[in-house]
């Protein structure tokens, strides 16, 4: 099978794998061939690749693999190139949280037209307040949070009407 794997948000590397009998696998990383094996050892793992062996800690969370190796943590993102993402469709319409925090005030209401740069929310994070502003001109479709709500990084804060919908509303 073929995968793309990027390390710490770096460029994606092409990886192909096929099983060799019961244990090891044959891997091609950017077209070069290796024999590798991941073995559980004492609560952690041992990764063997050709003649190199390294003790590591590893946790898998869906397509994110967290690895503690060489004295620090690395984050690998696995994607299957055969799946194309349609997740970008909403991106320009949704303002997401740049960091986790709490909503201090809301200055936008549903149906209100807003201009690029206009303050929509004030959030507090790391004991500092910051403003969430509109990334483009538009009309507020939905405000996802209320004052006092806490949220994680990447949470949807405010949604603008999609541009097609705006145009559709024109007479």
């Amino acid at each position: 099978m073929s995968l793309q794997i990027s390390l710490d948000e770096g460029p994606a590397r092409d990886v192909a794998l096929t099983r060799l009998g019961a244990g090891p696998a044959r891997l091609w990383i950017d077209g070069r061939e290796y024999v590798g094996q991941l073995l559980p050892v004492g609560g952690g793992f041992e990764i063997q690749l050709d003649d190199r062996t390294e003790r590591i800690w590893l946790v898998v969370d869906r397509d994110t693999v967290f690895i503690h190796a060489f004295g620090r943590v690395w984050q690998a993102q696995v994607t299957d190139p055969s799946e194309r993402s349609g997740a970008d469709a909403h991106a320009a319409d949704v303002i997401t949280a740049p960091m986790p925090g709490m909503v201090i005030s809301v200055a936008a209401s549903v149906g209100e037209p807003v201009a690029v740069g206009q303050v929509l929310l004030v959030i507090e994070s790391m004991k500092m307040q910051s403003e969430i502003v509109a990334g483009r001109d538009g009309v507020i479709e939905r405000v996802h949070l209320r004052v006092g709500d806490t949220f994680d990084r990447g949470a949807w804060l405010v949604q603008l009407q999609s541009l097609e919908a705006d145009q559709g509303a024109q007479p």
């Binding site: 099978m1 390390l7 794998l17 019961a22 693999v65």
Partner: peptide, 24 residues
């Protein structure tokens, strides 16, 4: 290379016939 190989071998996208240890 070691990290990418480890991620590939640990990924649930890689079909495994054997069971892995507890953390996974």
């Amino acid at each position: 290379r070691l990290l990418i190989a480890a991620a590939a071998l640990a990924s649930p996208r890689y079909e495994r016939r054997h069971t892995l240890a507890e953390p996974l």
